[in-house]
Amino acid sequence: MKRKLINWKTVTMLILLALLTVIFVSLGRWQLHRADERRVIAQRIESGRALPPLTIDKHIRSSDIVQWRPATVAGHWLGAFSVLLNRNQNGRPGYWLATPMLLQEGSREAVMVLRGWFPQVLTPDAMPEFPLPEGRQTVSGDIALRVPRLFELWNFGAKPVAQLPQQIPQSSGPLPQVQNLDLAEFAKVSGLHMLPLVLMQTGPSEQGLVRDWPHPSIDADTNTGYAIQWFAFAAIAALALLISLIRLRLKSTKETSSS
């Protein structure tokens, strides 16, 4: 009786090798796409920082608001309107301190300034104070289009949980603590007219506030390295598939000749 050349195990192996080849190639292409995205991000950061410093005022044009552009703003601190954002810094829990700066006395236009990070305290009574100078002040920093967000897993697919109090400033109690701060929501509860940007204050740390702001990953070489690995796996799987097909072809030829 003539023995079957291909059984279900052989077919399964061939299909698996073909699928692995396609999957590995797809993963390699995805890593190359991620590398391109990171190069674009790096270029945007470099382009923004290369622009001349922007002076922020209420007449600022939207075309001048560029991510990572250096900027300065002059105004009066509104310390009572400050908000704390829960953020980790190098693995340590703590807070970002966000305080709006009023551009002109008697007006409502303001800019949100991220002043820095400080470590978490054990009790509300131990919360440090960060006094602000009175009078008109000038602050320098880098522009962000919004307050960098912290992904909230517990809100995924669910109704967002209200975080800010109904009114800011509050008559008493500690500063509000939130996970994320939306400028439109803050404007609604504070009555301020917030400019559509955030200033991440730069300069040396002061009063214990650390100004080491997060940056998006721009290490495209890492993704390129991963892509090469995936393409190497794809080549191995494709070579194994080719060898298996050649062996089957040779066995088929041998069986045909012997019959």
Rank of each mutant, 00 (worst) to 15 (best):
S63H: 14
Q67L: 08
Q67W: 04
Q67C: 02
A71P: 00
A71Y: 02
A71F: 09
A71N: 10
T72M: 12
G75I: 01
H76C: 04
H76K: 03
H76M: 05
W77F: 08
L78S: 00
G79W: 00
A80V: 01
A80S: 11
F81N: 13
V83I: 13
L84H: 14
N86G: 12
R87C: 02
R87A: 05
N90F: 14
G91H: 14
G91T: 13
R92E: 10
G94M: 05
Y95V: 10
W96L: 05
W96T: 08
L97H: 13
T99C: 06
T99G: 03
T99P: 01
M101P: 01
M101V: 06
Q104L: 04
G106C: 02
R108C: 00
R108T: 10
R108K: 13
V111F: 01
V111D: 02
V113I: 13
V113G: 04
R115V: 00
R115P: 03
G116V: 04
W117Q: 03
P119Y: 06
Q120V: 02
Q120S: 05
L122A: 12
T123R: 09
T123V: 09
T123L: 00
P124W: 09
P124I: 09
D125K: 11
A126E: 07
M127V: 09
P128V: 11
E129Q: 15
F130R: 09
F130E: 06
F130M: 09
P133V: 13
P133H: 15
P133Q: 13
E134F: 14
